[in-house]
């Protein structure tokens, strides 16, 4: 598996898990012009991020190119314990997809 682009901090406390994550991604909006050629740079962005815990989806985001470079997301859900592993799948608009895992602390 290629090196992950996600940085995830998940903390379980009081029966809830709080997640903060950041993906290292350019999130090219498709609006910018190449300074040399004057042509538009095609859009390249993460369009879907799905977070699962024990095969249950706990969070899903559909993103557009209006999300900032290196997208940051924070959310929380009930359940999850220290040591549990979350499975996070991201999909780019190019169709590229990957799955990464992160442990809850």
């Amino acid at each position: 598996m290629a090196k992950g682009i996600l940085k995830v901090k998940a903390k379980a406390a009081g029966g809830k898990t709080k997640v903060k994550m950041m993906a290292k991604h350019i999130m090219e909006s498709g609006q910018r012009k190449d300074k040399k050629t004057g042509e538009l740079i095609p859009a390249l962005f993460l369009q879907n991020i799905m977070v699962k815990l024990a095969d249950k989806t706990v969070f899903e985001a559909n993103l557009g190119p209006a999300i900032s470079k290196n997208p940051y997301l924070s959310f929380s859900f009930e359940g999850g314990a220290k040591g549990d592993e979350m499975v996070i799948t991201w999909t780019e608009n190019s169709g590229k997809t990957a799955t990464e895992t992160a442990k809850i602390k």
Binding site: F59, E60, L63, P71, L73, F75, S76, F77, E78, G79
Partner: peptide, 17 residues
């Protein structure tokens, strides 16, 4: 800009940029 799915059990509180 974005759409967030909130399954049951997930808090309706999401932050992004």
């Amino acid at each position: 800009a974005a759409e967030f799915m909130i399954p049951a059990g997930t808090a309706a509180n999401v932050a992004t940029r």
